[in-house]
Design a protein around this nucleic acid. Structure first.
Lengths: 341, 341
DNA sequence: CTGAAAGCGCTAACAC
DNA sequence: GTGTTAGCGCTTTCAG
């Protein structure tokens, strides 16, 4: 329908100048005489010229773009991270694209290759593992920064919170409230995030002299559905417990749904703690007690680290952000004076 | 640290062939003799060569990439749309990138320009408006398909549901259950989605002989926070109503939060209907009555339409998908026999 | 089946 | 201040 879009030569011809002048006018207007600039801009406007960024990138050898690869785009946890990344990126003239790994090796490879194919200059990873081919040969990795997660087999620049301490704090709070049989809805236990929070859970138990019962630990993928199904299964099997510590708000909310379906009330019958302090945590009923993470700050710092790497400044040191337990309505003390029936 | 990545010439040199042969080996292996191919592949492997896609695109004049631009990435509604788009894209060898418009003209322009700069071949819009410069001069738009929404001023290929009928059906259900004073939490009323659902609301009222009261219609941006704050404001002002029809699940859930904070119960005191049937609708308590949209199908169809456009096949006709009212626990009949106090 | 060479659209030296 | 020219890395005729 529409004719092929104009290129820099069309503009040059129309303005009666060379392509170099057009390029200069667009990039450094002050290096061009007033009337020349005028002519060029007129031609640009008339033709609706937009420089072909592919050609520009090919020439400049940098795309000023970064890809943010997340574990599961449907977890709202990543949204504020994204915003933090974007803020830092924008300030430095970078663009951000977001990709969904869905915990799938093929997809992960796909995005890593996208960077190697020069679609982007760097990759911010929010996933817990890497396909074997990259572990074997780290030279194949483009510039990478890990945010919130960690790749256990490799020493990559990382921005995160102290997940062990955060989890331990949450579980200690439950124990201090009189709970002893505490379920842990863990993340995938084969990667950092899952194991770190599980470790915190175990540490709190140990500190309180409570024996660790593997039967109380269930592993899921941080999603609503996982939380619901795991707790449902547990209740069907007749397990007994008075509290749940979930490794994400999503799993916590899913768990509450399952508890309700079995006629149990939160926090009257079961106390529940989540992780992340996403927006929905304060909107559900009862509002969720959860571990707050400074998501925006994490994203911002990760992007800054990325920029430092890209600029060749030596690898920046890892950064650890603080967390905070936000107590809301989904937890309460277990009445100690009530004798069991 | 790592040396610059190898290019096609490095591979050619190492394999002792021309760059053309390397290119051919990678693109059409069967057009190359067995032993040549072997030599080339060995060199590729040894060097860890990944073709620079920017250069390839520059030469081929097509990027096989599509950008999906959504209104607000934090609304889970878009996730299944994205999955549908991606499925259709993958089947046809396309990649999908997702951008967040945040209802902001500058961001919208940014993404449209990204396509015009050849980062992508086409744009799937899930936003309700376009910056003026594109309305004035449609030739400036790259290949576009609109999904779920509509740009009122322009006749663009569109995939959506019948929003008027869907909204009308939901409100008729409330009326049939005995509700008369029904709040409508509308979307932005200056674009298609907001006005279409409002129109359905009005039509249902009119059909039942209920006078339209503009004071019962509140406009928000489909978000959780908007739903909560609008209903909160209403209750503070002492408004009376027995039901709410929200233009999104997010607003409905936010509304329920506000109702609770004012001591009102759902559905005992107020019935609530949402729109979209997102995952969370079935997980909250009470589960949300809502209008189901076939999100995945919408996304899939939109991408197929995009591919048809890109292939030059004439502009495909618009597509309308059916919706369905899913009745759950957040609505109930208003007891008619109870005299008002 | 393979190689030489042109060129995608742009930028950056280097001249003038 | 502006033009000429080489070339970013790849694909694709066109010869051979």
């Amino acid at each position: 329908m529409v004719g092929a879009s104009p290129n820099i030569r069309d503009v040059a011809r129309r303005a009666g100048v060379s392509t170099a002048t057009v390029s200069r006018t667009l990039a450094q207007p002050d290096k061009v005489r007033e009337d020349t600039r005028q002519k060029v801009m007129e031609a640009v406007e008339a033709l609706g010229f937009v420089p072909n960024d592919r050609a520009r990138v090919l020439r400049r050898q940098t795309s000023k773009t970064v890809i943010l690869l997340v574990r599961d785009i449907s977890n709202p946890f990543y949204l504020d991270i994204y915003k933090g990344v974007e803020e830092a990126a924008f300030a430095a003239g970078y663009k951000v694209l977001m990709g969904d790994a869905r915990d799938d090796d093929e997809r992960i490879s796909h995005y890593i290759d996208a960077v190697r194919e020069r679609h982007a200059d760097g990759l911010i990873l929010m996933i817990g593992r890497l396909p074997a081919r990259f572990l074997e040969d780290p030279a194949r990795l483009p510039p990478v920064v890990v945010a919130s997660e960690a790749i256990q087999e490799m020493d990559l620049p990382t921005v995160k919170v102290d997940n062990v301490a955060a989890a331990q704090g949450a579980v200690e709070y439950l124990i201090a409230s009189g709970h002893h049989r505490i379920i842990h809805l863990a993340g995938p236990v084969d990667d950092y995030l899952g194991t770190a929070r599980l470790e915190g859970y175990r540490a709190a138990l140990e500190a309180a002299g409570i024996a660790y019962d593997p039967g109380l630990v269930l592993s899921g993928d941080f999603s609503l559905v996982a939380g619901r199904d795991l707790i449902d299964g547990l209740l069907v099997r007749g397990a007994e417990f008075s509290a749940i510590f979930a490794a994400s708000d999503q799993m916590a909310i899913g768990a509450i749904t399952a508890l309700r379906q079995h006629g149990l009330q939160v926090p009257k019958d079961v106390s529940v703690i989540g992780f992340d302090d996403t927006l929905i945590a304060s909107m559900v009923d009862p509002a969720l007690t959860t571990v707050h993470q400074p998501r925006r700050d994490i994203g911002f710092a990760a992007m800054q680290m990325m920029i430092a790497r890209l600029n060749g400044t030596m690898t920046p040191p890892d950064q650890i952000f603080p967390t905070e337990l936000v107590v809301r309505g989904s937890t309460r003390a277990r009445p100690v004076d009530t004798p069991s029936p």
